[in-house]
Nucleic acid binder design. Structure first.
Lengths: 341, 341
DNA sequence: TTGAAAGCGCTAACAT
DNA sequence: ATGTTAGCGCTTTCAA
């Protein structure tokens, strides 16, 4: 490692000297958790401002036995979904006076192996673990170490009882089916399944089946295909369906990210949306309201999820009981279902 | 501050004890920058693995006088533009074995004041400063302190000579105008200007004027409006234009984010794109290829920009000369210009 | 090749 | 109310 010219930082000693007090006093003024004479405090404050003193995060961390930072572990940072999640997390973390370390464990440059996570007990006070970003063993190790952990879109493995956060997938898909059946009279509703690795996939499919049954509709296995929460996979699946002569009144795309692929496949086969086929997504991500036609979808409170995750972590740090949560969704009617919203 | 039950971390002493060596030796094995007997090294390695030892980032930082983390300062993290930037930065930072601290200084909860930046000399070894995210004074202070700094989409203020990174705005807009004029024969090309606070706005407008002149076309001030790089502002501007009876062959939207607003305004006034009006954007963000019609635009190498920024920071840390760069763009022909791409 | 020991900048317990 | 001091876990001289 090349030795770079070190930046001379102002330390607590500089401040103490200038203010004519001991470093403890400076420390007390800065942290505010011990009585200090008013005049002394003022002098110290002035010195701090004059020298532009900022406590060293490292020294503080070392002494405190805490890093004052939370970590966020995701599998692929450049997913539209993370835009608002990140915002929620960032806001909450900043509000708590903490830093945020992010780490994407997606495929590395060479597309070979997953990069091993950079985050751990040595550099965070707690980690937000997004689905599929961390192997169970490591999750277990960190949890047994006592490191606060919160799971996103994934429930705790084994009997670890790590709090988890998710949106109400079943209520979401139920709202969709109800709407398509009740308002638009659709019967043959195709379903694009997400990846096995995502729990959301499971819950959405379960909800789909239950909702159809609730309406007394048959479950046609050929109407269930693999969309992978992905634009290209969904495009391929829908194209295959159409080329094999399959017919349906509506398609649930799995999530919003997959929607553009579904729309394209439909268009390329001369079908109109929503006139010939209704299309509905899930998440209400950045894309949803900007597609043509505007996508009817289920809004996941993503930003809220992020804030909630930070709150959970803080709660865990205080040793409080921190139950898992399922956040409520909202059904957003736009145009791709056939409504004129 | 509530006292939480502290997580007992494995330290270098634990490893030393188990391996029967001194902590210096362990340190040498870990860092690899001092000769260690092979057998000893093996014993230490085993101990490290058995105990699952991870060096404390804080202790290391304190001793090294470096934090081993870079900071990213943006004004609003939830902008589509940052998706790929973030990915580029994250990859490069991880590859360098560093952490990434992000901080959004956008409006705080109460929408009142900008939050003061969380990043500084005390918690980073260098900062990537995105346009408009840090006041000049603080920039100057950090720079004078010797902290490596890289500017994104903004040149160095005064005579500070902080390296900056940008895309070739002028070449981008020139490519657009050339295409619209040469291929599609358009003459009246409207221009939506970005915010004053963004340098890109200036360069794009300059490029627009120069390109028109190069084609011997007049510059009609009424064809230049304020779009703010924003969907809603652009929507309003274009609507006003149309309602005041203005006519044009094409619109440059300023950036891709503004495009959906432009398209909507056009559609709502019964105009078709590209048949009645051609539309072209800038950036090739996540949205561009998913709009209807698919947006013809200029691709900014955003992910590349992120990687480059990290490279600049590393270069600065090594005390090397680190010149600013303008990254080349690529003109992406799709359908909104009238091509059938 | 290895160990002992001096810091790095801060907090908090303990004196006063 | 304030100062003194012992760590926090690591890196890096300096000696051996």
């Amino acid at each position: 490692m090349t030795r770079r010219k070190s930046v001379r930082r102002t330390t607590i000693d500089d401040v103490a000297k200038l203010a004519g007090v001991s470093i403890s006093t400076v420390s007390r003024v800065v942290s505010g958790n011990a009585p200090v004479n008013e005049d002394t405090a003022t002098r110290v404050q002035r010195a701090i401002e004059e020298l532009n003193y900022k406590p060293s995060t490292a020294a503080r961390a070392l002494s405190d036995r805490r890093t004052n930072a939370f970590g966020l572990l995701v599998s692929e940072i450049a997913a539209p979904y993370y835009l608002y999640l990140l915002r929620g997390i960032e806001m909450a973390v900043r509000e708590a006076g903490l830093g945020l370390l992010i780490n994407s464990v997606g495929m590395s440059e060479n597309q070979q192996e997953k990069t091993r996570p950079f985050l751990g007990e040595h550099n965070t006070d707690g980690i937000i673990v997004s689905s599929g970003s961390l192997p169970d063993e490591e999750l277990q190790r960190l949890h047994e170490l006592g490191l606060p952990l919160v799971l996103l879109h994934r429930t705790s493995p084994n009997g670890l009882s790590i709090p988890s956060l998710n949106v109400d997938n079943q209520a979401g898909i139920k709202a969709i089916i109800d709407h398509l059946v009740t308002v638009h009279g659709h019967q043959r509703i195709a379903f694009l399944r997400g990846p096995e690795s995502e729990e959301d996939s499971y819950w959405r499919e379960l909800g789909y089946r239950e909702a159809l049954q609730a309406h007394g509709l048959p479950i046609d296995p050929s109407l269930i295909g693999y969309g992978g929460f992905d634009e290209h996979i969904s495009y391929t699946m829908v194209s295959e369906w159409l080329e094999s002569g399959m017919s349906f009144d509506a398609i649930f795309t799995g999530n919003d990210e997959a929607a553009p692929g579904v729309l394209n496949a439909l268009y390329e086969h001369g079908l109109r949306v929503p006139e010939d086929v209704a299309v509905v997504g899930f998440d209400d991500d950045h894309l949803a309201s900007r597609l043509t036609p505007k996508l009817t979808t289920v809004r996941s409170p993503i930003e809220q999820l992020g804030k909630e995750a930070v709150a959970q972590l803080l709660s865990l740090m205080e040793g409080k009981p921190t139950p898992s949560k399922i956040l409520p969704i909202e059904f957003i009617v736009r145009q791709s279902c056939g409504c004129s919203g």
